[in-house]
Amino acid sequence: MSDVRMPMPTVRVTRYEVSCLPADHHHAADFTVTVECDEQGRWMVRRGAQVLSVEGVWAPEPSPFQRTVEWERSHLFTEEKAVRLARVTVPNLRAGDRTADAVLAGADS
Rank of each mutant, 00 (worst) to 15 (best):
51 V>G: 02
22 P>F: 13
90 V>Q: 07
109 S>D: 13
103 V>K: 02
54 V>M: 10
17 E>W: 01
87 R>Y: 08
82 A>N: 11
59 A>K: 11
1 M>N: 03
66 Q>G: 02
56 G>E: 03
108 D>V: 06
81 K>M: 13
22 P>H: 14
30 D>V: 01
49 A>P: 09
54 V>L: 13
65 F>Q: 11
64 P>C: 13
6 M>C: 02
78 T>H: 00
13 V>C: 13
75 H>T: 01
35 V>L: 00
18 V>K: 14
64 P>W: 10
7 P>L: 09
45 V>T: 12
53 S>H: 04
2 S>H: 13
59 A>M: 10
70 E>S: 15
93 L>F: 02
24 D>K: 09
1 M>G: 15
22 P>C: 08
24 D>C: 05
34 T>A: 02
92 N>V: 01
85 L>V: 09
15 R>W: 01
25 H>N: 07
30 D>P: 02
41 G>C: 08
105 A>S: 14
3 D>F: 08
59 A>Y: 03
101 D>W: 04
37 C>E: 11
9 P>H: 07
42 R>N: 13
49 A>I: 11
66 Q>Y: 05
72 E>C: 08
13 V>S: 09
91 P>T: 15
48 G>C: 15
70 E>N: 05
52 L>M: 10
18 V>P: 06
18 V>F: 06
16 Y>E: 00
96 G>E: 02
91 P>C: 09
39 E>A: 15
97 D>G: 14
107 A>I: 08
59 A>I: 05
87 R>F: 12
107 A>T: 02
52 L>A: 04
98 R>P: 00
97 D>E: 07
76 L>N: 01
32 T>W: 01
99 T>S: 14
93 L>K: 01
59 A>P: 00
8 M>R: 10
86 A>T: 02
51 V>C: 11
26 H>I: 12
33 V>M: 01
75 H>N: 12
89 T>E: 04
32 T>H: 00
5 R>D: 07
103 V>C: 05
61 E>M: 13
2 S>T: 15
6 M>I: 08
69 V>C: 07
48 G>E: 03
68 T>S: 15
101 D>V: 03
98 R>A: 07
99 T>N: 04
5 R>L: 06
26 H>F: 14
80 E>I: 07
55 E>I: 03
94 R>C: 07
91 P>M: 09
80 E>Y: 06
56 G>D: 03
98 R>Y: 09
49 A>E: 11
45 V>C: 08
16 Y>R: 00
